[in-house]
């Protein structure tokens, strides 16, 4: 699939939903729980889960940083891009400034 910032996707196997914040320009294979992610207006078929929790408000990115997604609804399933697991972006410790 081809991604662009703002596109919303859901897991095909759990309740999880994401929104794409940054996307590489080319075709990618983005999966959740080993199954390609689907447009967010399609229905998921919840499975038993793979033990990976996706927490709402967490951001995930690939090693290059070209892809970044935000979890907008919690669910299960590891996020992978081309077979490589996405990793959580470390939380920052910034004081509130406004």
């Amino acid at each position: 699939m081809k991604l662009h910032p703002g596109i919303r996707l859901r897991s095909a196997v759990s309740e999880a939903e994401i929104i794409v914040i940054r996307a590489p320009g080319d075709e990618v294979d983005l999966r959740c729980g080993g199954v390609p992610m689907i447009p967010h207006d399609q229905l998921a078929t919840p499975g038993p889960g793979d033990g990976h929790d996706l927490l709402i408000g967490k951001r995930y990115s690939d090693a290059s940083g070209d892809l970044e997604v935000l979890v907008t609804k919690a669910g299960t399933g590891q996020l992978t891009l081309g077979g490589q697991a996405l990793t959580i972006k470390a939380a920052k410790a910034l004081p509130s400034s406004d």
Partner: peptide
């Protein structure tokens, strides 16, 4: 917002 605060 995403760069400066964590959700909830």
């Amino acid at each position: 917002v995403l760069g400066s605060v964590d959700f909830l």
